[in-house]
């Protein structure tokens, strides 16, 4: 990456004696959508707070747009937009008034303010409720209002913390589309989420957090290759005549990297290519009755779960050996 806009090196956060973020390294390139993913309590929010100077860094460093957020907070905050986890607004005033306050804090010239606010509200489809008090807004609307604030700022980097949590599927879908809209305007997006599958579609690259560390970092298909041994998963339900070892036969299909069997009928293949037709042919020629065939690209959830299964197996193995 020639031009990282966010760079973390050995970034660490300690509270008294618990380490919450533990020597994290990552780069985010310009115009990228980068996902900080992981379960609740993994340290995603804390990492974000350190990038914005909202909490002190215990060790290591982070650069945002080449600046140190502790030394040049104003410069960083002028160019970075932040949508906090479950964002709040002043309920007793309207959406437009809320944005007018932050617009003044941003230092937007008085003449430009109104038009920029209306344009931002229109982008997130809130123009009709611009003069409604925020108290009446749903969670999805608040979330969109927060995004409007980032648009209003014309931020180069948008940092979104759990932007889709608590939204219904429709609202989630709309919000993710708006995030992709940001990317089209070459805004760099850093988003955090504990819903891995939900956001994997929009992320160019992801960092998977666990216990304050990044355990996996890269593009989703690459991680799938690395962890699952393939980017595709095929599920087959086959009833076989007794005495046939279908599992072994499926392993011989070119491209298949792993086969696991669940219960009596279900076989799951990991593969580096789409092996549906070959696998089905093998099953049928072995005399089996194929009742179900499903195909999916590797999900982050699967990658994540599999990674920890492997970890557990590895540590369990060494313990046995010792």
């Amino acid at each position: 990456m020639s031009d990282p806009v966010i760079a973390a090196r050995g970034l660490t956060k300690r509270y008294r004696n618990t380490v919450v973020v533990d020597g994290v390294n990552f780069d985010v390139g310009r115009g990228e959508i980068f996902g900080l993913l992981g379960p609740n309590g993994a340290g995603k929010t804390t990492t974000i707070l350190m990038m914005l100077g909202l909490t002190e860094v215990s060790a290591g460093e982070v650069r945002v747009l080449g600046q140190d957020p502790v030394r040049s907070p104003l410069e960083v905050k002028r160019r970075v937009g932040y949508l906090p986890d479950s964002v709040g607004f002043y309920d007793q005033i309207t959406a437009a008034e809320n944005l007018a306050y932050t617009a003044r804090l941003m230092g937007i010239a008085a003449g430009e303010r109104k038009s920029r606010i209306m344009a931002a509200l229109e982008r997130v489809r809130l123009q009709e409720v611009a003069d409604k008090r925020v108290a009446t807004f749903s969670r999805g609307m608040r979330q969109r209002l927060g995004l409007a604030e980032i648009l209003l700022k014309r931020a180069e980097i948008a940092i979104l913390d759990e932007p889709t949590s608590g939204l219904d599927p429709q609202a989630t879908h709309e919000f993710l589309e708006m995030i992709e809209g940001l990317k089209r305007e070459s805004v760099t997006v850093l988003l955090s989420s504990h819903m891995l599958d939900q956001v994997q579609r929009v992320c160019d690259r992801v960092a998977l957090f666990q216990g304050g560390r990044i355990v996996l970092l890269g593009k989703v298909p690459e991680l799938a290759q690395q962890v699952l041994g393939g980017g595709y998963l095929v599920d087959l339900d086959v009833t076989t005549p007794s005495g046939v070892d279908l599992e072994a036969q499926l392993r011989t299909v070119p491209g298949v990297t792993a086969v696991s069997r669940f219960g009596q009928f279900r076989y799951r293949l990991s593969a580096s290519r789409d092996v549906r037709s070959d696998a089905a042919a093998v099953a049928v020629s072995a005399g089996g009755a194929l009742t179900h065939l499903a195909f999916e690209e590797a999900s982050l959830d699967a990658i994540y779960t599999r990674y920890f299964q492997k970890q557990a197996a590895a540590t369990g193995g060494t313990r046995d050996a010792a």
Partner: peptide, 10 residues
């Protein structure tokens, strides 16, 4: 929950 939004301004 407005604090971090306000302090994220310059």
């Amino acid at each position: 929950r407005t604090m971090s939004r306000i302090l994220a301004q310059p």
